[in-house]
Nucleic acid binder design. Structure first.
Length: 371
DNA sequence: AGCGTGACGGTTGAC
DNA sequence: TCGTCAACCGTCACG
């Protein structure tokens, strides 16, 4: 299983094609940027392509979240039982009604809004397939009672609640799938950085990173001349090498990390730190959230984490503060608006998920003081 | 040199 | 259960 299968980019960094970078790395990118470090330097230091750095920072600026968008899945269905029911009613009331008229009525009656109203073709399909013969009213379809507006439960979430980040990380918490991983720890994620966080905090975090990197030899400091070892190496490193930072880091990530790494079965033992590094190693599995990466912590999908706390925040008090809740929060941070706009809607992000998972999130405290 | 952007190949997950 | 589809991902290369 596990082997990591990652690929190495031109900068020597490890990445998994198709999968998001570990939250920790994402977080780092944002932190470094907030410290005034240029994107190109961030790219080199973290060994992440500049395009990616640019993208993550742009997203962060736009949404306030460092979390990746929701991957996979389908848009929420608009043809909920309730909608079908209304369509049926309209059809029954006026057998000659056109699909476009039904569509207009759904909007007019408030059954649907412009965002979730079925297309004319969908309505036609419903008429043809589900309603077919009006004669059978009772239909089974209905279902519901509720309105369509919020389509079903899920639907409510816009597809993208993403921003919330369903991902493994946090939200996932939501329980969504991720959790399943089980073991995985998920870290929590809080990934979002509050924009406000004081840099000071950040710094520390950063330092953390740095530290460990430095130790490992990786980053060389400012000059950057030296970059961290390749991720590839990291793994090794991590485990073994990082003790030092461990503490700090550990705290942070440790857990998370571990999780990441092992996620599935987190061995309790591992030292945390290491994990930290490992990160990139994308852990083993495929599991995404899993990247062990440094950030793993952040990432981790797991719920547990959340509960536990955030890695980052913990001890250090780093700026990051990622409180557990954050995950969601991240999303929250930003304005829904955007989401709405962009992503599709955002309205309810997380819908349940987020909420569930993160209880605190909303409230999200902010970090600023994390500690 | 630095950065934005889009193509590309890839993964994911709802349907 | 499996294939499809559409979303996202990060890298790379170009301007």
């Amino acid at each position: 299983m596990e082997q990591t299968y990652g690929e190495v980019n031109q900068l020597g960094g490890v990445f998994v094609n198709g999968r998001p970078l570990p939250n920790a790395i994402r977080l780092r990118i944002v932190e470094l940027a907030q410290l005034g470090i240029r994107p190109c330097d961030i790219s080199r230091q973290l060994r992440v392509s500049h395009g990616c750095v640019s993208k993550i920072l742009a997203r962060y600026n736009e949404t306030g979240s460092i979390l990746p968008g929701a991957i996979g899945g389908s848009k929420p269905r608009v043809t909920t039982p309730n909608v079908v029911k209304h369509i049926r009613d309209y059809k029954q009331g006026d057998p000659g009604i056109f699909a476009w008229e039904i569509r207009d009525r759904l909007l007019a009656d408030g059954v649907c809004d412009k965002y979730n109203v079925p297309s004319v073709s969908s309505i036609s399909r419903i008429l043809r397939n589900k309603i077919g013969n009006l004669s059978q009213p009772g239909g089974s379809y209905d279902g519901g009672s509720s309105s369509c507006k919020q389509p079903a439960p899920q639907p409510a979430l816009p597809y993208n609640h993403i921003y919330q980040y369903p991902y493994p990380s946090a939200v996932t918490a939501a329980g969504t799938k991720m959790s399943s991983h089980t073991g995985a720890p998920v870290a929590a994620a809080h990934v979002s950085l509050p924009r406000s966080w004081p840099s000071a905090h950040s710094v520390s975090n950063i330092l953390g990173i740095r530290t460990f990197m430095e130790q490992s030899g990786a980053l060389a400091g400012a000059d950057g001349s030296t970059y961290p070892p390749k991720l590839e190496d990291w793994p090794g490193v991590n485990r073994t090498s990082f003790p030092a930072s461990a503490q700090g880091i550990n705290a942070l990530d440790k857990s998370a990390v571990e999780a990441d790494i092992k996620y599935p079965q987190p061995p309790p033992g591992l030292s945390a730190v290491s994990t930290f590094l490992s990160p990139c190693a994308y852990p083993s599995s495929n599991q995404p959230g899993v990247y062990g990466g440094p950030g793993g912590s952040y990432l981790s999908p797991a719920h547990h984490w959340q509960a536990q706390g955030n890695p980052l925040a913990h001890h250090h008090g780093p700026g990051v503060a990622v409180h557990g809740g954050e995950l969601a929060s991240s999303a929250s941070f930003k304005h829904p608006a955007r989401e709405a706009g962009d992503r599709k809607q955002a309205t309810s992000p997380g819908g349940k998920a987020a909420a569930d998972s993160l209880p605190g999130i909303h409230g999200l405290p902010v970090p600023a003081s994390s500690s």
